[in-house]
């Protein structure tokens, strides 16, 4: 379980105000918020090494402030601007970077790439945005990540890709992993998400279960 307890962070124009919530393994949380509302800041609290925030974040009972390296090993952070070795192929990246994880399985990586119709011999820098996102998903699955953080991964996705994308997420969720995805696009929030959280100016204005009610009405002012 992931738990945020009164997490607050003030850094220039980026801020989070008393964020608290819980998320269990196997569930998908969608975080909606305008640009600047605090979505990336929320993810950064979990990822950054300096950990300049007040409050605590627990994952599987451990405070990630203290066990940060272990936490990063459980994490798959998926974003547009992730570095990787752009001049190397997907497989080479797995080979080079895999050594830092407890278990990185090259065969599994190749299989996942194959399932998604992607070449693991293509340079990461040559991948399209969609390919890059999927590569990062395969990368995360290959080291058996248990918590996936997707930063605006769905922007600009066509409907066909979107359906495949959620099918991939379902496979991931079925293996007792949790997924958190952020977006600033209202229509990206959909019935595939288990929980929906709305961030406004650094505060949670809504956090609730998504039973597939009216897409708009459900989280405009309940809970």
């Amino acid at each position: 379980m992931l738990e945020f307890r009164n997490v607050t962070k003030k850094q220039g124009s980026f801020c989070l105000n008393n964020i608290s919530f819980q998320l269990e393994e196997g569930y998908l949380l969608g975080i909606l918020g305008k640009n600047g509302a605090g979505k990336s800041t929320l993810l950064n609290c979990m990822l950054e090494r300096k950990k300049k925030y007040q409050g605590e974040i627990f994952y599987q009972g451990k405070n990630i402030r203290e066990e940060h390296q272990w936490f990063l090993g459980q994490c798959a952070y998926i974003a547009d601007d992730n570095q990787f070795f752009r001049m190397k192929t997907g497989a080479e990246n797995v080979d080079l970077l895999g050594g830092f994880y407890e278990e990185m399985d090259m065969d599994k990586f190749v299989q996942y790439m194959r399932d998604m119709d992607l070449s693991w011999r293509k340079n990461v820098g040559a991948m399209s945005r969609g390919e890059f996102i999927r590569f990062q998903l395969a990368f995360g699955r290959a080291h058996n990540a248990k918590i996936y953080l997707l930063d605006e991964a769905t922007a600009g996705m066509d409907p066909v890709f979107r359906r495949d994308f959620y099918n991939i997420l379902r496979e991931i969720l079925a293996q007792e992993a949790m997924v958190i995805m952020t977006t600033h696009i209202q229509s990206d929030i959909n019935r595939n998400m288990d929980y929906i959280c709305r961030l406004e100016q650094g505060k949670i204005s809504f956090y609730g279960e998504n039973f597939g009610g009216e897409e708009d009405g459900e989280f405009q002012g309940k809970d």
């Binding site: 990822l47 090494r49 390296q69 272990w70 936490f71 990063l72 090993g73 994490c75 952070y77 992730n82 570095q83 990787f84 070795f85 752009r86 001049m87 970077l97 830092f100 994880y101 820098g125």
Partner: peptide
Amino acid sequence: NIWENRKNVSIYEVLKSLPVNQ
């Protein structure tokens, strides 16, 4: 450093999200 596309990228940047202590 990694020399990528006429730009220099720091190795710390590449390994930023990985479970390794800077």
